[in-house]
Amino acid sequence: MIQIIAIITTLVFLVLVIDFIRRGLLKEKYAVLWLGFIVVIAILAIWKNLLDMIAMRVGIAYSPSLLFLVAFIFILLILLHYSVVISVLTDRNKRLAQEITIIKSRLEETIGKDSQPK
């Protein structure tokens, strides 16, 4: 049962990600992470023996737990990736705001000088 749920969920995810890429809502750069995640989860969900084998090797009694573990690690990685992206964006946002501040004051000075001689 859990296998079927896992397969269906992965399929829904795959369709969603592809649709988001198609509609331009998801940049390819970020889509790669998601597609990789989906592929790994799909392989583990479909090829149940592989899952059982790895689970036994690493000492997990209930093999679907391994599926969750893999998913959990992937989600952590994606979150970490987002923190990096947000930090970069924050810095760029700050620099843009600072440049706008300086340009704004320049503009006000120029406009002020232009309107004076009238």
């Binding site: 700050k94 705001a97 600072q98 706008i100 501040t101 300086i102 704004k104 004051s105």
Partner: peptide, 13 residues
């Protein structure tokens, strides 16, 4: 002379 930030960015910025 005046420079005015559009929004609050903190003392460092």
């Amino acid at each position: 002379k005046l420079l005015a930030h559009t929004f609050n960015m903190g003392i460092g910025a």
